[in-house]
């Protein structure tokens, strides 16, 4: 505290300075200045630039050439890979994210009671999600589901003989990436766990007295009270799902036959392999619009299924 005293008296001696540091309006902006500068330089200006570039042909070396809506026209009408990558990503998001949340919720319920070893269990179910984004895991996945793979010898133990590589087969390649995503249900699980903990015990006790079964307790108490958490998770997971890149880049390299060509991967290739940066920006903006639409649909629908206690 002695330090703070000296600091304080020093500042009060300087008249103008002390007026500045004691003015909430000036002071507030000084504190949030890092955010505002970063927001302008790394978000707003790049977004504006991206929008402008989406109407141009630009390869970073020359000057951008204005071509109007040509990029969008090409995207929508002349580029089958664009639509392919779009639908691959949509498929991935619509299968992997609900499954991940379902697992997260189920395991959270199983682990919500405090018994011996609970913290060990929680840790082991959470660990894959903590390290799942690492390149080490992507590299590992490639070997687990590749030719002569671990998964096939596991299945052989169960009497199922498969000889093909899961990653080399266009029918199963995306599935391996979906499995990888679902495997990482740990962090939504922790969010659900803390949500479950916040539900007052008395609700269940009252329900028990009224003779409610375990199932009724789940559907009438746990699930409705968790809907805000589910809602939040759904939005955040959906957005990150649309951005999936690394797994497709390393594990399957977009193949085979573009069956795992994620949108972000295709955008990366257009921009940094072929240097069609204008085209890449057009793709980015299209994705932003799609995500905004999806998010607002979830938001709109939320009044029908998300339960807020304070509304009662």
């Amino acid at each position: 505290m002695a330090d703070s005293r000296t600091a304080a008296t020093e500042t009060s001696r300087q008249g103008l300075w002390s007026r500045i540091v004691n003015n909430d309006n000036i002071c507030g902006y000084i504190f949030i200045a890092p955010f505002i500068i970063g927001f302008l330089v790394f978000t707003i200006i790049p977004m504006g630039a991206s929008l402008f570039l989406s109407f141009t042909k630009y390869d970073i070396l020359g000057a951008p050439q204005w071509i109007g809506l040509q990029n969008f026209k090409t995207m929508f009408t002349q580029d089958p890979k664009f639509w392919k990558s779009f639908w691959v990503t949509v498929k991935y998001v619509f299968i992997a994210i609900p499954l991940r949340l379902l697992f997260a919720l189920m395991i959270a319920l199983v682990l919500s009671k405090d018994t011996k070893g609970t913290s060990f269990y929680r840790a082991s179910y959470y660990l894959p999600s903590l390290i799942g984004g690492s390149i080490a895991i992507a590299v590992l996945w490639k070997r687990i589901f590749g030719t002569g793979s671990v998964i096939n010898s596991l299945l052989a133990m169960l009497g199922i003989n498969i000889n093909y590589s899961w990653i080399g087969n266009p029918k199963t390649a995306l599935l391996t990436l979906i499995i990888l995503a679902v495997w990482q249900f740990g962090s939504p699980m922790l969010i659900f766990l803390s949500g479950i903990k916040q539900i007052p015990r008395s609700y269940y006790e009252a329900a028990r007295i009224d003779g409610a079964s375990g199932g009724a307790c789940f559907f009438r108490i746990t699930l409705p009270l968790l809907t805000p958490v589910i809602f939040f998770n759904l939005i955040m997971q959906m957005i990150t799902g649309f951005m999936v890149f690394t797994q497709g880049y390393i594990i399957t390299e977009g193949g085979p036959l573009d069956s795992t060509l994620f949108y972000a991967l295709y955008m990366y290739r257009q921009s940094f392999t072929y240097y069609n940066m204008g085209y890449g920006c057009a793709m980015a903006w299209f994705m932003l619009v799609i995500i905004a639409i999806m998010t607002s649909i979830v938001f709109k629908s939320s009044s029908a299924w998300v339960y807020y206690e304070s509304m009662e």
Partner: peptide
């Protein structure tokens, strides 16, 4: 609100201009 929105902004939108910058 601006700050909370940046949490929901997909990084790919700013990726190319950031690279150029």
């Amino acid at each position: 609100v601006c700050m909370m929105l940046t949490m929901m902004l997909p990084g790919q939108v700013t990726m190319i201009p950031r690279y150029i910058m």
